[in-house]
Amino acid sequence: MKNHDLYIVFSLLILVVFTLTNISLGSVYIPVKEVFKILFQQSENETWQYIILDYRLPKAITSIFVGSGLALSGLLMQNLFRNPLAGPYILGISSGASLGVALVILGSSFLGSFLLGNTSIVIASSLGSCLVLLAVLGVASKIKDTMAILIIGLMFASFTSAMVSVLSFFSSAESLQKYIFWSFGNLGNISWQEVQVFFICWFIGLLLTLFCIKNLNSLLLGEAYAKSLGVNLKQNKFLVIVATGILAGSTTAFVGPIAFVGLAVPHLTRLVIKSSNHYILIPFNLIFGALIMLVCDSISQLPGSVYTLPINAVTSAFGAPIVIWLLLRKKKLMF
């Protein structure tokens, strides 16, 4: 345990370094010295100050919440489905959120524009992901075969994307563009006020997870053992679903769908710390998720250029090979 404490402090330090690096990089060159000045003292250059404090800093903080939140929801889902390949994106949870958001953005022409607030996007996205999660879970309770569950998750995803296609066919170019940009994923388009709301969602998800932490560990032994250790299976399942829905749903709502972070980070964490014990796994998972998201964001900024890549493309380009590599390794994936 002592060793792990040391590692946590160490990786937190790395996280701070990465955050500062992330803030220092961007399309506008700002010397590192100035960045520190702006962050910790006062700076004369108001433009730079604005870029750092109102654009890059909230973006970095959002990246941390997105990465850690998705990693945590992936971990929860792998535990819930007892399946190492579960993750918010793979099981169609993100598509559920997409459908919710599509209904709000694209459907606003039918439903009236009063729905078009950020709050309603967050609510719709969370509801959408919770609903798909429940549906997948309902099917999963009938079918024990893990491969079948994953395929069903994919089917749910294509079903929801079909709905989205229908909606986009009937919607205006303006709202369609808004939706498409949302689906690219964007970490930078978030105000301080939204960061606060996002933080609250993230915190609730984390709190619910901490409340389940003992149960999550018992469930590593399987449902029968967990029950024999006093776990209320139904209640735990409910809490985990709500936590996953809030984490994955709010993330997707604020920054759009982000692929593979939820699936890959828990496995990378297990690879590094060599344990499935959630007391250790959860803090490392949060930190690693945040780190990877910061790196992906830095890459998507294409340092030195004015272009920004869609963040979803960056995480996919990195995540997919990682997952393939994990599967090709001789050792079986363990949850």
Binding site: R82, L220, L221, G222, K274, S275, S276, N277, F335
Partner: peptide, 8 residues
């Protein structure tokens, strides 16, 4: 023995 083997 369907429990996680990734535990000490």
């Amino acid at each position: 023995t369907s429990f996680s083997k990734n535990l000490s």
